[in-house]
Amino acid sequence: MSTDGDGRRPGANGPGGGERRTRRDDRAERLVVAAFTVSIVGALILAVVYIAGGQAQLEGVALALALGGIGLGIAVWARYFMAADEVVEERHALASTEEEVTAFTAAFEAGEQTLARRGLLAKLGLGALGALGLAALFPIRSLGPRPGQGLKNTAYGDGGRPLRLVDADGVPIRPADLSRSSLTTAWPEGHEHDADASTLLLQVDRERFRPLPGREDWVVGDIVAYSKLCTHTGCPVGLYQTELDLLLCPCHQSTFDVLNGAEPVFGPAARPLPQLPLDVDEEGFLVATGDFSAPVAGGFWDRGRT
């Protein structure tokens, strides 16, 4: 390592080697040797582990040894054998001097005048750039469709006729398939991949269930259906506390009262889970007679406008 010799800490070893070696130097040097050796060993371990089939933990450790050995070696080297003198350097003013500013202003204004002499051209040129900028925005429009009714409707409302509810495999569901203790997730038939149409089917305690006014016939026996998407930020509401008849959203812990129109009783959600009007068809399968009572998932500014 070449140093210019001035101000090295006492005992530092220069390339000339004219100074007396101290025990401290010897120890430091041995440490550097050991560190670099560890690094080489680490690299070898890495190669062996890789050839032997690879193993994440060992690879990480081997890499750490290989890299850390080099790092430690250089750190000790710098600490013991490099100039640690304090050098003082003047700071120069950052701002330009008056003369420089004047010279710059003069040069800039000279050019500006050339432009100003054809002022109309310059303005038109700027106008053209602006128009290009605006026109360039239009391709961005291609990135996605106009947000339309899609946010407000689901497949349940599409056909204007009752749609069967099916499970993830497309199998229709009968009321008898449900049990009191479990949640069933259902979709409108033919739309099992519609993220916004996922529906919770719940069997509730008929004695305590209080249907909302006007929704008395939205249930089939003791079965009620709500949107599965939390009205906060749309997470699937996946936890059902059967004894309390509460639905819990795992994302931010909003809690909805199943017996009372799925009104939020706790947490950041502000609106009830939209309810789905249920019925059974001639073959005894559950159907939805219309769309959810409100747009599903999180709110947006014109959610209430039709």
């Binding site: 890499l63 750490a64 290989a66 890299l67 430690l72």
Partner: peptide, 18 residues
Amino acid sequence: KGTAAFFLTAAMLCALGG
């Protein structure tokens, strides 16, 4: 010192990652 810091950071991250 900067070079040493780089290698030591890399070593720490590899140990964590492993």
